[in-house]
Design a protein around this nucleic acid. Structure first.
Lengths: 340, 340
DNA sequence: TAATAAAATCGAACCGGTACCATAAAATCT
DNA sequence: AGATTTTATGGTACCGGTTCGATTTTATTA
């Protein structure tokens, strides 16, 4: 906090009896300085405790060594893992991470894209975008590269990494293979990005010659624990209790399972439950929740790598899209010996 | 990504037929510009799509509108809540958040403090410091204000927010009041900051005229789930199973409980367990874990407020220390009807 | 040793804003 | 209307680095 931070490259230059540019060369390891000069300058730097002002450097070079990650809420258990992976890659490449929560608020999302150049960042990774179409145009005119997590289609000027939309199919397939015959779906609003998970329910049933039953579908207001709890209550109120539930995410699955247990319904014996996301809670909750992993860490790593590469390459190379395949992880919420 | 980002304040000035300084005045809402000039300039800004370059501004003003939060690992369930609270306050005040994981690595911690001025930040909040004494001197010479979470003593030039070290006492008191007579402790290394939680075990027992029994103390290698599992195995191997366990944190408590249940030991009927931290998992795990809340969100909020205030005030005002009181939250892992 | 080539260093413009002083324009007062 | 204040705007140095052409120093060659 000592004010002494005012020692500049000019001070060093004067002290060492050289020009500013020479000092600059040395702190940037530019070849072509006589060893004797170098050591003179290094000594001066040492003596004065000089630390280059990165702002000044950035102003000239236009490299800030920072990238942003815009997510909807770090408290959502999916994100810490993602943020961690991104920060890891960033750090390995000498970048820092700016974390932004947009709370799935379309206005905030827009503001982030529009005001990107006001932030000290070289690029941004964004996900959980609630209103993609509204953002597309702005992304295309963004002042720094954008990397999106989630498939936003073709006409967006951004690298992307996303999962095949097979999570739902994997989950459904698992339930069916296990022997469930009366499968239900519990999810949040269909229009949100996770909403597409609903489609797998219908698709998978028809692909397996099972008749969809709209009474077996519970659509809550969000993708939270609370929705799971409400879904459980709803399913319990049905004339026939489903024997398998495909939950749109693990939070819902966990809430659902807990409520079923409270109602003395056994999981997986009476009802089998599979979730999606494989958040860490799924290993903690009892029974442990079978889940389709969306490869969080992998996704973050790849997004960061794509972004950093884009920052280096600029627009010279074509856009890249990386598609990952989700993976089912079987745990106790679906492991049952008997088949109905 | 369009390169057009080169429109500067000079371009606007030329277009509007005024001086740079006038434009600057307008974008900074400095009073004393004729309305007609203002609108002329605003129009030019609009037409050119001008966005001020914050780097240039920061270089002159030395305000970056960014603060950093250095924690050990965002994946640790305690941190998302904290990071969220900090980001909230930051955002409300027009600041962004830079997130740094130091993994409890003393060298990284030191590097963060020493290279602070190379980051684009106006201040930093730091916690989970593994080697406080090594950092003190560097903190005192830091180039931006530091706010510490955790009590680092007197001779540190930093605002602080920390909890009274009564978590342990609260937890122990609860077990004792509930009727436990053979209480055990499960924790991580005693030298780490959470290690002080052990002391409450001894203290509390003697304060209540109960004899500490060193066989009832399990010290693991860290504060993880794994340690809890190992502790459970250890306690089960004792001639007499404890009737209450005070776990140094919730992760340990959760691991411990799960392993006890696997061993057909009921919680809380056979063994009562209380943790510390009140992480969100404690509400998810079954039975829900009674825990002493360390007021995560509150802590983050206050830290951010202290830091921002310090940034505004500079060194003109005395250091501030805020001490919070932990609070016990009773859940199913300790609610039992019968008393042994 | 002088002429030439290569290497090292200097100097100044520049990045894009801010801030302060000087000046011009408008408003107020005799 | 002319002098005096007040208000609005212009001009420019500055923040602390980088960059690149110009210049000096050193090494090479004749």
């Amino acid at each position: 906090m000592v004010k002494s931070d005012s020692v500049t490259i000019a001070d060093v230059a004067k002290r060492a009896g050289v020009a500013k540019s020479t000092v600059s060369r040395i702190i940037n390891d530019v070849p072509g300085v006589k060893p004797v000069t170098r050591s003179k300058v290094l000594q001066a730097i040492e003596e004065l405790g000089f630390r280059p002002n990165m702002l000044a450097r950035s102003l000239k070079t236009n490299m800030k060594q920072q990238i942003a990650l815009a997510i909807d809420d770090i408290r959502n258990p999916y994100y810490p893992e993602l943020a961690w992976a991104v920060e890891q890659v960033a750090k390995e490449n000498g970048y820092r991470l700016v974390l932004i929560n947009h709370y799935g608020n379309a206005e905030e999302e827009l503001a982030i894209i529009r005001r990107m150049n006001e932030m000290h960042i070289d690029g941004i990774i964004m996900l959980s975008i609630s209103n993609p179409t509204a953002l597309k145009n702005n992304i295309n005119h963004a002042s720094v590269p954008v990397c999106l997590i989630g498939n936003m289609g073709e006409d967006v000027n951004a690298d992307m990494v996303f999962l095949s939309k097979t999570e739902g199919l994997l989950a459904m397939e698992h339930l069916i293979r296990i022997g469930c015959s009366n499968i239900a779906y519990a999810g949040g609003p269909k229009q949100l990005h996770q909403g597409t998970r609903y489609e797998a329910y219908d698709t998978s049933l028809s692909m397996n010659f099972m008749k969809p039953n709209s009474a077996n579908v519970y659509i809550g207001t969000d993708f939270s624990l609370q929705t799971g709890i409400q879904a459980a209550d709803y399913f319990c109120s049905l004339p026939e209790l489903p024997d398998g539930v495909y939950a749109a995410n693990d939070m819902i699955a966990i809430g659902l399972i807990q409520r079923l247990l409270e109602n003395k319904i056994r999981v997986p014996e009476d009802v089998t439950v599979v979730g999606v996301d494989d958040i860490s809670w799924s290993t903690i909750a009892r029974p442990r929740v079978s889940s389709v992993s969306n490869l969080t860490g992998e996704t973050g790593r790849i997004a960061a790598e794509l972004l950093l590469r884009r920052i280096k390459e600029g627009q010279t190379t074509p856009l890249r899209k990386v598609q990952l395949e989700p993976r089912l992880i079987v745990r106790e919420s679906t492991v049952k010996v008997t088949v109905n």
